[in-house]
Structures are given as C-alpha cells and as structure tokens.
Design a binder for these strands. Structure first.
Lengths: 214, 214, 214, 214
DNA sequence: TATGAATGAGCGTTCATTCAT
DNA sequence: TATGAATGAACGCTCATTCAT
C-alpha cells in the first residue's frame, strides 16, 4: 500500500529528477539552477529551500540514487539472483546476473552518467561511490567467483581480476552500443553479445588444437 | 636540432597545457578563463587572442592532442609494434601492445580524461573522437585479431567483441588502479595484471577437468 | 484614481528613465549598463532581468516612448487641434499646432534625441520610426495642407514639399535655439520666431512691388 | 603640381578615411580601433603612432574635414558663387547655391553624418563646429539675404530666420530622400524639389485671391 | 511553503592602449 | 616607421543565492 506522498516530497522529487536529467545532458557545472527550476515547474527560490547550495542538490540526489538503487536494486538483487541460481552452472548464473544488471543500468543511465562524471570532481562523491558501491560490488563479485572456484567449476585465478575484467568488457560493450552503435559491422543484439562475452571468458580464445601444433 | 619556437607558439602551448590540466582537475565548465590565464602566467585577454571562444580552447586543444598522439602515438605505433612482432605468438604481441599503450595512456591521462568527459556534452568532440580515434582503433584491433584467427592461433569468434572485451578489461583495471588502488586486497603490479588478463582471455576461466565431471 | 504601481513596474520605469537620460547624454554605445544601474539605484543584474540584452533596453524604451507619445500625444492631439480649429484660417491653425508640438518636443527631447541618433545604427528602430511616426505625421500633415488647398486658402502646390519644408524650418530653429542660442544677434522668442516663419511661408519673401520694377 | 605624398601621409589618410567610414556606419563608440586598422590594412599599433588616443582620431579627422571642406568647399565657393552670380536675381542665385551645396553635401555625407552625430557628445567638436562652420555659414547667409533686402528684391524680414528656414527645408528634404525616399508619393527629382522649395519661400503658399475674399 | 524580485560576485569577452622588436 | 604580441580595465551578461511577502 503506497502512502500518499506529501506535497513537499513531491516537490523535492521533481527538483531531483529535473536536476539529474539536466546534469546528465549538460553537466553539473553547466546547468543553471534557473533551468532546473523551469524544468521542475517551480520557482528558483524554492530549490534553495530544499537544497541550500547547488552542490547539495548534486550530492543529495546522487546519494539518494545510490541509497535507493545501489542498495535495493544493485546489490540485493545480485544476492537474490545469486541465492536463487546458486546451484546453477556459473555460465548460466553470470549471464542472468549481467542481463538483469544491464536492464537496470539502462533504466538508470541518467544518474549513473552523472555519477561517473562528477565523481571526478567532488571528493564527497568519490567516497560515497567507493564505499557504498564499488566495494560492495567487488565484494559480492569476488565472493561469487571464489565460490565457484571452490566448487571446482572455475580455475583458481585472482577473483578480483576475473570479475573486474568481465565488468570492463560488459561496460565497454554498453558504452559502444549507446555512443557508436554502428562502429564495426556487428549485428549482434545485446543479449547475444553477452552470451558471446561470457563464452570468451569461460573458454578463452586460444585455438587449442592449433596451439598444440606450435 | 629543434628550431627555436616562436614566442606566440610558446604562449599558445602554455595556454593549452594550463587549460587541459585545469579542465581535467575541475572540468571544463567549472574552470574560469581567469584561472587558466593565471596558471599560464599570461593575461586573460591573451587567451582570447588565440582562442576567440572558451570552447575553441577546449576543442582546439583536444583536436591537437588527437592529431599529435592519436595519429602518431596511438595508431601508427600500434601498426609499428604489429609489424615488428607480427610473427610472434598472439599472446606475446598483445601483451607488448597493451603495455606500450598503457604507458602512453598514463603519460597522456590529462587530455584523455578531459576528452572522455567532455565528449558527452560537445557534439563536435564526439565526431572527432569517433572518426579520428574509435574507428581507427577498432579497425586496427579487429584486423589484428582476424589475422590470428586466419593463422589458426585464435578461434573464430567475432573479432570486435574480442577486441573490445580485452580493451574494456584493461581500461577498468587502469581506472581502478588510479581511483581506488586499494580496493580488494591485490598486490599485483600493472604488468602482472596485464599478463593475467591476457591469460584469462586466451585460456578462459573454466576448469575443464571439473566441468567434464558435471 | 491611479492604482498603486506594482514594484516591478516601478523598477522597469526607473531603468528606462535612467537609460534614456544616459543614452542621450553619452550615446547608447558609450553608456555602460553599470552606469544605468547606478543611476537607477538598482543592481546591474536587475537590468538584465527586465531587458535580457542591452539593445532590448534601447529598443524597448524607445518603442514604449513612441507608443505612449507618438500615438497619444503626437498624432491624436494633432487631429484634435485640427478638429477644433478646422474652421480657422490656416495661418492660425498651423501656429497653434506648431507651438503645441514644440512644447511636447521640448518636454520629450531626451528620448527624441536618442531616437534620432540611434535610428542611424539600428535597423529595428528605423522601421519603427518610419512606420509608427514618419508616415503618420506626413499623412496628417499633407492631408491638412490639401484640405486648405481645396478650400482655396492655399495655392495648389505639392503638399509633401510644403509640409516638410515647414517642419524643417521649425526643426532647425529649435536645434539652433538649443545648441547655439546666441548665434546671429536675434532676440526673438520662440513664439515670435514661429509667427515669423509661418508668415514667411504664407506670404513669401519676395518684394512684389520691387520685383515688378525689374 | 601635386607633390608626391610621403608614405606616412598616405598611412594617416588611410586611417582617417577608414575611421570616418566606420564611424558613420556604426558610430564612434561602437567602432573598435581593431576594425579601423583592418579596414585601413595596417596593424592596430600603427593607429596609435598617429593618434595617441582614439578620440584624437575622431577630432582630428573631423577637424581636418572641416578645414579642408568647410573652408575650401563650403564657405569660399559660397562666396565664389556669390561673387559671380551677384547680379542675378535672388531666385536664381539661391538655386545655384543650394544645388551646388547639396552636391558637396552628398559627396561628403560620411564625415558630415559623423560630425552631426558626435557633436552631441564631444564638447571639443561642438566648439569647432560652431566657430568654424555654423557661424561662418550663418554670417554668409544672412549677409546675402540682407544684400537682397537692400536691393529691394526681398522684403525686410529677419535674415537669420529666413536663411535658417530655407536651410531647414532643404536639409529635411535631403534627409527624407536618403532615409525614406518612398514616403508620400512624390516623383520629383531633387532639383525639382529645390526649385519648388525656393518658389514657396519666395512667393508663399497663400492664395491671395482667395484670401481677399475672406 | 512557495514565490518573485533583487542581488553582486564573477564569468567570458572586448578593446583601447603599450611596447619590444 | 610599423608590427605583432600582450595587457588589463571594463564591458555585457549569468547565476547561485537571499529575502520580503
């Protein structure tokens, strides 16, 4: 049962949503508060009732995003998926996880882009991102890998390197699909690419038969 | 023998260098021209003799960077390495290429960071990056992979996906090393990480013996 | 009963008044917005809340002047005078009209001077002046002349030339009175000059008796 | 025999000519020295070798114009015309003078416009204009009128008013022809207008027969 | 709580002016 | 003598922020 939102909460939401969208389009510094007010359909003064400094608006909205999605949607469901699919083969599990993750990623690409960009310039964000996101993601990822190593399904290599490499491969794929989709003639769908990437990571690209010959 | 640079060229260089450093530290929009002038040790007016609009300073300095390093250092040497090491095993070649690339990457991390950030907001940059960098890099990378597929050393999988995945894995490694070096207890040097990553890509992470059993 | 003006209207009025006075004293281009703000007793930023570009301030204030005085005071009262004095002799009518016009002219000399000067450099103003002022004035003036020609009181000559000539004579008189009042020993008051000018236009300066002799 | 102009004189001429043209197009304040330099085909620094302050450029070029044309072309030839045509009827003399004057006026409209505009804002110019131009013109004009009054050809009215009125009528005609030529359907050529204006001034516009009746 | 009006520091940019060559 | 490079004060304008209502 959804409780009726208070009016002030609605206003705050409108501000944050408008701000994030504009930050992602023009960058934080290049977005005037006047533009945010206009987009949110409120007066400029109102913004400062909710966020005394412009920077608060950035930090709060991203923190809120991390709290809401980082915890609830990025981390927990990981664990959720993990619990459900725990007994499946690694191959199948990782594919499910990635695909689900990407769906969220795309849906939340606006705050994510802002976060990844502004984290460069704002110390506060950096700490939040590292502590609330990166560490948790890596903790989960490496643990998962190590579980499967223990099970004997994966070979015993540095789990951080493995996990980070898979993430890097996936991330660059997503970036390319969105920024330069028709680079390199490639008709694969995202899901097909994911399958292929996972396959590469699992089986490698060396042609064993050939390499025997050498 | 280097000819003595003209005074105006020196000034222009100072402006560009200061600008790129500050853009990378604070972001383009958050860097006032007054700050650039101060750092370059010149007057603010002088900047505008060289770059009529602030944006010209961004675009020109990045274009110049791409022209100088994109062509001379990123693309050609790739081909150079490639010619020299062509007959080596893929494994050895790719390690050399990656390590050399990373060295350049680190040396030029300032303009690269600016480029990767600002490309989001400035159409002109996007076109330049895609046409002058991405396409060429991908063209070279996929060709290289395909060469080794033909030689029978690599299995026949989509070369774009393979190349992009390796790049992604490497990139995320570099980013992590620079932004959160002590995440996940990992004492590997960069070179060791590269060796490991290449190993993973070549041989995969599946434990073949175990998977047989399943 | 005048309703109390809204605060913003008062501010706008102050800006326009200060601007026009300064424009008339120093010229539009030579008047900084900072000076306008100071004279109006407001901050510089406020000016741009009302007039986004400095030029808007010029055009708006002159347009407003034309709308207020051009229509209400320059054109209509002409017609008003005309209706009332219609049956008088041309001589008496034209004197009344000129004198009344000059009174307004002097009272509004500030915006008029700005208008006459800046019309040279700004296309927008030119169109407004021609369409909203010149044409209407000339239309009225020529019609009036033609009425009196039909009545047989004036001889049948080109009404535009007649009207324009009277205006020119009056204008130059006003200009001289204001810029170089003591040029040529002339103790006539403005009203006396007007009477004289009208007399000259009506009766000419040729000495008929003398010219007969020649 | 024209002496060969010194190079520096040529440069100075180029500067003045360019400056006057641009001042007349954009106004003195709105014309940057850089634009003048460009138009004159010289470097910006050079201007300040000849005219240490921008204002010197305005005052010098207009003073020079007045000295050259005011004296040589505006005043003397007036006297010249006058001496030659002295014995003609006033009507013929004044027409010749006006037509010749207008020809010069048009040829020199650029500096004249600048002069008439900038005289409002620069005290120095005002003095020069009044002393070197206005007074002389009026002195000549009134004397001429008075001569003809003495001869009995013109009636005895204030010569300043007569002269100034004719000038005003002519000036407004010229202004209208150049700024709004197709206002009021009027196909008269400039010369025809002049003839008409002189006719009006000489004979007046009152219909004597009619006025008798009243 | 929300607004509209105002602020003023600071921004990108211009431009008259200087000066070494 | 003329230039090209540089200057820095001042300009038009923006924008985060304040505050009375």
């Amino acid at each position: 049962m959804k409780t009726k939102k208070k009016k002030s909460q609605i206003t705050e939401d409108k501000i944050i949503e408008s701000a994030l969208n504009l930050f992602s389009e023009y960058g934080y510094s290049a977005t005037p508060t006047s533009m945010i007010a206009k987009k949110a359909g409120i007066s400029e003064g109102t913004i400062f009732k909710y966020f005394p400094k412009k920077k608060d608006l950035l930090v709060s909205s991203l923190t809120r995003f991390i709290d809401k999605y980082g915890e609830k949607l990025v981390i927990s469901p990981l664990e959720n998926n993990y619990q459900i699919h725990k007994n499946e083969k690694f191959e199948d599990l990782i594919k499910v996880i990635i695909k689900e993750r990407i769906r969220l990623f795309i849906k939340q690409s606006v705050p994510i882009r802002v976060l990844l960009t502004e984290v460069q310039y704002h110390e506060e964000l950096r700490e939040i991102v590292i502590n609330k996101l990166s560490k948790k993601i890596i903790y989960f990822g490496t643990n998962m890998i190590e579980d499967y190593i223990k099970k004997g399904e994966l070979i015993d290599k540095n789990s951080l390197v493995i996990f980070r490499s898979i993430m890097g491969a996936i991330m660059l794929m997503v970036i390319q699909k969105f920024t330069a989709p028709n680079i390199g003639q490639n008709n694969l769908s995202m899901d097909e690419e994911i399958d292929l990437i996972v396959d590469i990571f699992l089986n490698g690209i060396k042609n064993s038969k050939a390499s025997d010959k050498i």
